[in-house]
């Protein structure tokens, strides 16, 4: 079953990605293919397999509460697409979001 146009646009909104009309059609196709592959996986009988989010059998990996030096302010702000004083500068935050 192919994803609807609205479903693709909703995913794009959640990911904050702008899509042209051609893009929407392209991703309808591609995303639908991915979902179809999952329907194949769903045919496997997993009733005896407990759900997991981990592929390795690790647990209780914790660190002690010890402070280590942070990066320098310059190094950090080098990543800012736009900088003002010692801050990252971003567009105004819209009330409807967040």
């Amino acid at each position: 079953m192919k994803l609807s146009r609205e479903e693709v646009l909703n995913k794009a909104l959640l990911a904050r990605i702008g899509l042209s009309d051609e893009d929407v059609e392209k991703f309808r196709e591609q995303l639908s293919n991915i979902l179809e592959n999952f329907t194949i996986l769903q045919e496997v009988d997993t009733s005896d397999v407990p759900a997991t989010a981990q592929s390795v059998d690790l647990k209780n990996v914790m660190r002690d509460d010890v402070v280590m030096p942070s990066s320098s302010q310059e190094e950090i702000l080098m990543n800012a697409p736009r900088r003002e004083d010692d801050f990252f500068r971003v567009k105004a935050v819209l009330e409807q979001e967040g």
Binding site: V61, M62, R63, V67, S70, S71, I76, N79, F87
Partner: peptide, 30 residues
């Protein structure tokens, strides 16, 4: 492991690649 005591720190001085979510970083639980 960045310091959590930010009250009197200059802006963006208690920050590391994990704080920024850079590719390839590995967080760990305190």
């Amino acid at each position: 492991p960045c310091s959590a005591d930010y009250a009197s720190a200059s802006p963006n001085t208690h920050v590391c690649p994990i704080c920024l979510g850079m590719p390839g970083v590995l967080p760990s639980i305190n």
